[in-house]
């Protein structure tokens, strides 16, 4: 078989796995984003118990290996009566782990907004919620995007771990293909390139988003102006 033919054959066989990898990345990142926002804002809260809870979550999930977390969710959780499918365990592990790193990014960006902005909002008698939603967060988002872009790529790479709990992602299918055809070099080279292409797509996407957001974003526009 010619090289091109063999490569396109491999790509074809691996495509369903790549699709699942993409799916995991998207869903996992949504969960991670939600957790990052919730925990990140909690880290800046005034109430100490809220801050402490968020800090425990962040330190725990950052300080332990994602694979250990995945295995715990998949193998140990059933003993507590909760059985997760490989897909559920995978998404949960990805979201919880990357969300913890994301929380620090959110926290850093929020406290970087100049203090005068919060004071101006207080002077205008805005409630803490309004302050955060309309004034602080919109300004913090710009600073959050580059680190979030990096975390998104980390998440993509981490999806490969789900192959170890038998989820048919790109890496799992590559292993399967290898054991059936033995074309190790071609297969793994193609797989690496496929991941690289996906990572590059993410990088481009985030860069585009950064450009749009920093173009003096006027958030909302939810009331009509004549």
């Amino acid at each position: 078989m010619t090289l091109v033919a063999s490569v396109s054959n491999i790509v074809e066989r691996l495509l369903p796995g790549a699709l699942l990898t993409a799916e995991l990345t998207v869903v996992g990142s949504l969960l991670a984003a939600a957790l990052a926002l919730a925990a990140g804002l909690s880290l800046t809260a005034r109430a100490m118990p809220v801050r402490a809870a968020a800090r425990i979550y962040v330190e725990f999930f950052r300080g332990t290996s994602m694979l250990v977390q995945l295995f715990w969710l998949f193998f140990a959780l059933p003993a507590f009566g909760v059985e997760l499918s490989p897909l559920q365990a995978g998404i949960l592990a990805l979201g919880l782990n990357i969300g913890a790193y994301g929380a620090e990014v959110v926290r850093g960006a929020v406290i970087a907004v100049p203090k005068g902005q919060a004071e101006a909002a207080i002077a205008l008698n805005m409630s803490p919620g309004l302050r955060m939603r309309r004034i602080i967060l919109p300004q913090a988002v710009v600073a959050m995007l580059p680190p979030f872009g990096n975390l998104l790529i980390e998440l993509l790479k981490s999806t490969a771990l789900v192959s170890l709990v038998t989820l048919s992602d790109l890496t799992f299918r590559a292993q399967l293909l290898r054991s059936s055809t033995g074309e190790t070099l071609e297969i793994f080279s193609v797989v690496l390139v496929m991941y690289f292409v996906m990572a590059y797509a993410i990088t481009l996407g985030v860069r585009g988003l950064e450009r749009r957001v920093s173009r003096g974003l006027d958030v909302g526009g939810s009331w009509k102006t004549s």
């Binding site: 902005q117 101006a120 958030v219």
Partner: peptide, 12 residues
């Protein structure tokens, strides 16, 4: 209150 450093909201 009017601040020394204005503190206008830059995104509006």
């Amino acid at each position: 209150f009017v601040f020394q450093h204005f503190n206008l909201f830059p995104h509006m």
